[in-house]
Design a protein around this nucleic acid. Sequence first.
DNA 1: AGGGTGACAGCGT
DNA 2: TACGCTGCCACCC
Length: 268
Amino acid sequence: MIRRMVIRRMNEPEERVVGLLRAAGERIDSRRDFAPLVERILESATDSFFSVGSPLGRVFVAAGPEDVRYLAPASSPEEFVRSYRGCFGRFLSDASGSEMKELAGRVEGALAGERADVPLDLSETTPFQRRVLEIVKGIPHGEARPYAWVAREAGSPDASRAVGNVMANNPVPLLVPCHRVVKNDGRTGSYAFGTGEKERLLEQEGVSPEELLRAPYVGTPTTGTVCHATCRNARRIRPENRRPFRSVAQAVTAGFRPCRVCRPVVAA
DNA sequence: AGGGTGACAGCGT
DNA sequence: TACGCTGCCACCC
């Protein structure tokens, strides 16, 4: 209880934390009592980590007992622990081959493209970030959606750029597949690990960046709908019925209406 | 036509 | 506060 509180507030001014600890019944007479107390609390609050193979190569994963909090490539466990501490201000202990085995298995499965659901702890993110990350988590393997689409789905239709910022700080890349979020004009956009990696990841999932650029949207006269090119419905359109578009607006002008499954954004 | 560029609105942090 | 994994439009070939 106290431990949680200290962890949550460890970036706040010391006086404030001291006040809270006193209120919680801890005895702190002088400044000298404070640091060791916090240290003790933090030492006992170690999250653990393990590493697994992934499309980005070997990655490390930091997790609590039940859920994943952070995923990143690193050249060594030490480097990973350092970066975790930089982000979360918390210690990490090695958990390879221990009680994290079950969670590790699920992570490995998910990274291999299975539909395995990995519980995530996003409690240290803002509400907006959380909404965005949840939306992005739902973009299926082999599909891509624009930043503007994510923004609208998250309830902030004009926040595409802010969505980019959330992606840039995604604590769990691959698990929240931010590589599937692309620009509205079909270009792939940036990626924390380089645009090359982003395109490689997409290609591995069967999304061709070239094709996406050529026709980010596809309509079909059969149903009169326009889809994101990677929408599961769009992929079934027979070649002779496929009408490529560079924007939803063009498709709408041509008489197509947005697909109800992939819900392309009609420009305002 | 459609591809490229640059300015800037707009958002959350 | 200024900044950024964007979007849109104007303008140019």
